[in-house]
Computed example of a mutant assay.
Amino acid sequence: MQDIVRNYTVTLSQITIQTAAQSSDVAVDLVLKAENAPFSAFISVYQDDPVPRVNARLGAPHGRDSGPLDPHGVWRADRVPLDEGGYDAGGAYWGLRPIGVSLYAVQDGMGNISFVDAPNKTGALQQAAA
């Protein structure tokens, strides 16, 4: 079985670098080693595409893994567009949202993602913190 490689953006105190890796931890390690930087220089890591292509050979998954966020991280919320059938760009099924509500991927800058429904980015950050 081949490891899935995703693109990450890693920010250190002096530089921001995009890299491909099997996980956010590996991405951070690669950048720290490449820059010969101590871990104390690490600021954040974000998955560039929080909705990568899924294996839908046996049918689309319902949603995606969503976990707790680090309260000390640098959080950001990105709207996840859904098509007219309720699928994200990677093929996972979420269902349709009521008017005025969107799906958001909230990342904590530590490699964790939580998916929430909210009316806007501010609401998404508040919902993820609840």
Rank of each mutant, 00 (worst) to 15 (best):
A37F: 03
G63Y: 07
A20S: 15
S24T: 08
D83R: 09
F39D: 13
Y46W: 04
A129K: 15
A27K: 12
S24F: 00
Q18I: 00
A77H: 04
L103P: 06
S23L: 02
A56G: 15
G91L: 07
L82R: 13
A124P: 08
I99L: 13
D3Y: 04
N112W: 04
V51W: 07
Q18F: 00
S44I: 09
T11Q: 12
R97W: 00
R53W: 03
S102K: 01
L82M: 08
T9N: 12
A34T: 10
I43Q: 13
R57W: 02
A56W: 04
R6H: 11
A34D: 14
M1Y: 11
L125Q: 07
S40M: 11
V74Q: 12
Q14E: 14
I15A: 12
A105H: 05
I15H: 09
G95C: 01
I113M: 04
P38Y: 02
F115G: 04
P52F: 00
W75N: 06
N36A: 10
Q47F: 02
V51R: 10
P50W: 01
I17W: 10
V80Q: 09
A56F: 06
I113A: 09
S23A: 04
M110S: 14
T122F: 11
G91V: 08
G73L: 07
S114P: 00
G59V: 05
D117I: 00
V45T: 14
Y46D: 02
D88V: 04
D29P: 01
V80E: 05
T16G: 05
P50Q: 01
P119Y: 05
G73Y: 07
L96Q: 15
F42T: 11
P119K: 10
P71N: 10
A27Y: 02
A60H: 10
Q14A: 13
G95F: 00
A129M: 12
L69Y: 06
G85W: 08
L58R: 13
V45W: 08
G111D: 07
Q22L: 00
Q126Y: 06
G59M: 06
D78M: 06
V80R: 08
A130E: 14
Y8C: 10
A128K: 14
G123W: 13
G67C: 03
R53C: 01
P81Q: 04
M1N: 08
H72W: 01
G109K: 13
Y8R: 11
P61Q: 03
D65L: 14
D48F: 00
A27F: 03
G109E: 13
Y93I: 03
N7H: 13
G90R: 04
V10P: 11
I4M: 12
V116K: 08
G90Y: 01
D83N: 15
W94S: 09
D108K: 03
D83E: 10
A27E: 06
P52Q: 04
